[in-house]
Write a protein that binds this DNA or RNA. Structure first.
Length: 889
RNA sequence: AGGGAGUUAGCUCAGUUGGUAGAGCGCCACCCUUACAAGGUGGAUGUCGCAGGUUCGAAUCCUGUACUCCCUACCA
């Protein structure tokens, strides 16, 4: 016997083990089935599952399970990412607690520590993924530092290097002081900062006066190598070519002219610090200025800063300002809001820093990557990301791929002490490729994490070896991810896939929004507003969490998280559970016919209810299929929700209760068969959305295969034999009965007639066409309407009666309930008055519309016809209500 | 500054070729009716941001405008 509440905690682990131990997640490298493949965006190996993952994974698992059940060779390829900066950062912080720095520990020992950390926490996230129900093919799980991936990384590096598309150069890069590494443009977050604009006097060398320069970063003047004015600026034009004496250092630097300067801003004079500002860098290059680096890797002033050496940037700023004040060279300080780049990992302000780095040239790689999106070979969903992607690819700059970290793929380049040659090689060379001497040293840096991620669609499939996996599954079908990593990851996978596999890595990029808190804010540690998905799973079950996402996922939009909504879907799961309980209780003596449906003379024994629910089921299956095909997942989820709750539970189960509770007739056997079939199909339809409860239920159903997860996904094409039992005429009949019952309940509710109080009901059948329907459904009307005596076709006296005219399609039925002795009539008068008012509004609106010649002439015929019928029906309703009102008063 | 998205019920959001506005939650009333009180039945609630335009007809198409959010780039 099933408990009257569904308890996910008892079910989920057991069901997951059942799937896994039976190998249901496994895809086949060689198969006759059509392939369907999604590669999982690899989460940080030492991370934990957050809501963003939960959303992302739920969508992928939906697709995978749906396709798996639809006969595809479905592969969801999982993996984890070494996440260079993030992981190194965490371990470094842990070490700090023990009072050790990574430098003290040394590279080898430190990397060992990280591996230990990885072994300790590396399983956490995959365990959490299992709790969500992710049906990944775990045998294929890959880590970005696995030997196979390393081979791929080196091969790609060497190949691009040999083509000249990877180069080494001294460039200004974004530098994170705390992490002591370069970071990419994309890892910089701009924040609005309240700063100060300092106006500093730069005396002219010839003593003829001075210039005033405005800056927010006075300490960088130590690295100034020019001041710049606009060549058309009358105030300063004559000074171009002269020199100023740089305060605090007394270095002479030239005054140059460049249109880059905005005459209107500040004093119209800009100090140029080519080694510490991106704009100044460009000017410095253009005007051939000296590049003076004043910082160390830890963002402290170096020996070029003279007396300020050793100070951190902020301290140096204070000291410089103080010293300028003392020299009377600081003429003004004003508050100034400007945006400053911050390292997205450490949170520290980013310092533009001149250093030797490795770059990927993106010019040639980006061209085909644009083309495949323009041509539609790769499709973005929602489509609006196409424009964003193309825009970004047009302004793409070379990609700085070296990081001054220890955790990651070490750059496969060796420098020769003897001849300065750089040897780049897939295998450790042992000797210089040019002079052959063994005096070589490997580059200390590692590659940007995204470099290995960019190869993920094929490095996980055994590339550079030729494998059956690649033949079968490359290109993959979908890539599902948030819009925050389109450029970090998606664009780079496209470039690398095209370059090394000569084909796109995936066909469709499904972009979903970010999960935000209930107030629409980003979930973040610092705000303390993160919600742990595992906690939600423990509280409401994985299925409720998943359904919550799927039912409210609208193309590309951000997702506002709401716990009460999950609770609502938990209730839905319970509803399904209890419907099953009811069904099983009524199917105890049910034997599935071994011969199938044909063997039974079932058709003639079916009730109208059966024909109706099958008809509705077919409609839902069609809707679900169309919605899933077009990636409107929430439409599919909502269609199922509404069918199960509001058709199957609210009506079908209620309507068939008398049959099922009745004698063992052939009609009852037929209804049992339909009940069993519908439930079975519903469970399978729901499976990709809420896999745990559906598998648990499926295993208990009278007709079931090995496992729901690998049973066939119902569509209108499958099982035509069963769906053919559906009948539109039955649907019409039941709709009419539903309407009649609803109006009876409305009259009862509005008049506050207690459910325990039986009533008499008269149905005036206005329309010949529907004459037989009420009498055919007499028992349903009596039981669900809580009716004492039911009279059909006899209008009789309307005195002291509640009356409603019910319309379904073009047919009408008059619902009459004598109120004498039950209630006083005040409530009924109110109820009718309310309806009269609404009807009058409708009628006048419809009347105006239909008397408009242009409307009648221009609108579609069926629109006009429908309005005519509606007007006529409304008028009849109004008449009978007014009539009833008279008889009440 | 440039690009993108949004503004519909108290809240979160649907609304796919223009044809009298929908769901879930919440709210109100009544019900422990033998699957489910995590339930049942009924009910209330919207100038569809604002202003124009096209049209017989606009939440839907066009123009303008206000506000919100995101992304990219930034003035030293």
């Amino acid at each position: 016997m099933l408990s009257d509440r569904y308890n996910p905690n008892e079910v989920e682990d057991r069901i997951y083990s059942l799937w896994e131990s039976n190998g249901h997640f496994k895809a086949e490298d060689l198969s006759r089935k059509p392939p369907f493949c999604i590669i999982l965006p690899p989460p940080n190996v030492t991370g934990f599952l957050h809501m963003g993952h939960a959303l992302d994974h739920t969508i992928q698992d939906l697709l995978i399970r749906w396709k798996r059940m639809s006969g595809f060779n479905a592969l969801w390829l999982p993996g984890t990412d070494h996440a260079g900066i993030a992981t190194q950062n965490i371990v470094e912080r842990e070490l700090k607690k023990e009072g050790v720095t990574r430098h003290e520990l040394g590279r080898e020992k430190f990397v060992e520590k990280i591996w230990e950390w990885k072994h300790q926490y590396g399983d956490r996230i995959v365990t959490q993924m299992r709790r969500l129900g992710d049906s990944c093919d775990w045998d294929r799980q890959t880590f970005t530092l696995d030997p196979g991936v390393s081979t791929a990384v080196r091969k790609v590096f060497v190949s691009l290097y040999e083509k000249g598309w990877i180069y080494r150069g001294k460039r200004l890069v974004n530098w994170s002081g705390p992490l002591e590494t370069a970071i990419s443009d994309l890892e910089v977050e701009h924040k609005q900062i309240k700063g100060t604009l300092y106006h500093i006097v730069y005396p002219l060398d010839d003593g003829s006066g001075s210039l005033v320069v405005a800056t927010t970063r006075p300490e960088t003047l130590l690295g100034d190598t020019a001041v710049c004015v606009h060549p058309d600026d009358d105030r300063y034009r004559h000074l171009i070519g002269k020199f100023v004496k740089l305060p605090l250092t007394n270095r002479l630097i030239p005054i140059i002219g460049d249109t880059y300067v905005d005459k209107e801003f500040g004093s119209g004079v800009v100090k140029i610090t080519p080694a510490h500002d991106f704009n100044d860098y460009k000017i410095g290059t253009k005007h051939n200025l000296e590049f003076i680096n004043i910082l160390t890797k830890r963002a402290e002033i170096n020996e070029n800063g003279g007396p300020y050496k050793g100070l951190k940037v902020q301290e140096a700023r204070k000291r410089v300002v103080e010293d300028l004040k003392n020299l009377n060279l600081l003429v003004k300080e004003e508050p100034h809001i400007h945006s400053v780049g911050h390292c997205s990992r450490s949170g520290a302000a980013v310092e533009p820093f001149l250093s030797e780095q490795w770059f990927v040239k993106t010019e040639q790689l980006s061209t085909p990557a644009k083309r495949v999106v323009e041509s539609g070979t790769i499709r973005f969903e929602p489509e609006s990301w196409t424009k964003v992607y193309l825009h970004w690819m047009n302004i793409i700059e070379d990609w700085c791929i070296s990081r001054q970290l220890w955790w990651g793929h070490r750059i496969p380049a060796w420098y020769c002490d003897s001849c300065d040659h750089i040897t780049v090689s897939e295998t450790d060379p042992g000797a210089c490729g040019k002079c052959g001497k063994k005096t070589i040293k490997q580059d200390e840096d590692v590659l940007d994490t995204w470099f290995s991620s960019a190869l993920w669609p094929f490095s996980t499939m055994g590339w550079p070896n030729e494998t059956e996996t690649q033949k079968t599954f490359y290109p993959t079908t979908y890539l599902v991810t948030g819009h925050d990593i389109i450029f970090f990851w998606v664009a780079r996978m496209i470039m690398m896939g095209l370059e090394f596999k000569r084909d796109v890595p995936f066909r469709t990029v499904y972009i979903h929004g970010l999960v935000r808190d209930s107030q629409g804010r980003k979930m973040s540690k610092s705000l303390g507003n993160s919600v742990d998905p595992v906690e939600m799973i423990e509280k409401f079950g994985a299925d409720a969490l998943r359904f919550n996402f799927l039912a409210h996922l609208y193309s590309g939009k951000d997702f506002k998280f709401s716990e009460t909504r999950i609770e609502g879907y938990r209730n839905f799961m319970n509803k399904i559970w209890n419907a099953t309980r009811f069904a099983l209780g009524n199917l105890q003596d049910f034997q599935a016919p071994a011969e199938g449906l044909k063997a039974l003379p079932i058709k003639k024994n079916l009730s109208t209810f059966d024909e109706w629910i099958v008809f509705k089921l077919a409609a839902v299956e069609k809707k679900v299929e169309d919605s899933l095909e077009s990636e409107h997942f929430s439409e599919a989820a909502q269609a199922l929700y509404s069918f199960i709750w509001h058709e199957f539970c609210d009506w079908y189960i209620e309507l068939t209760k008398p049959i099922l509770a009745g004698p063992k007739t052939e009609e009852r056997a037929a209804t049992q068969l339909v009940l069993a079939h519908v439930l079975n199909r519903v469970v399978r339809l729901l499976h990709p959305f809420c896999p745990f409860i559906t598998e648990e239920i499926y295993q208990k159903l009278p007709m079931h295969g090995q496992a729901c997860i690998i049973d066939q996904y119902p569509t209108v094409r499958n099982d035509r034999e069963f769906l053919a039992f559906g009948s539109a005429q039955a649907a019409f009949e039941i709709d009419l009965i539903k309407e009649v019952l609803t109006s009876v309940r409305n009259i009862r509710g509005e008049n506050r007639i207690s459910p325990a109080q039986k009533i008499n009901l008269r149905l005036g059948v206005v329309d010949e066409k529907v004459q037989k329907i009420p009498s055919a459904n007499r028992s349903s009307l009596i039981s669900l309407g809580r009716v004492d005596n039911l009279f059909i076709g006899e209008e009789g006296s309307l005195s002291k009666c509640a009356v409603t005219l019910v319309s379904v399609g073009e047919s009408q039925v008059k619902v009459i309930i004598p109120l004498e002795g039950l209630v006083d009539f005040d409530e009924e008068i109110k109820r009718i008055a309310k309806q009269v008012e609404k009807l009058q509004k409708d009628i006048s609106m419809l009347h105006n519309k239909l008397s408009n010649e242009k409307f009648v002439a221009n609108a579609d015929e069926d629109v006009v016809a429908a309005d005519r019928i509606l007007l006529e029906q409304s008028r009849q309703q109004l008449t009978s209500l007014q009539d009833a009102l008279l008889r009440l008063k």
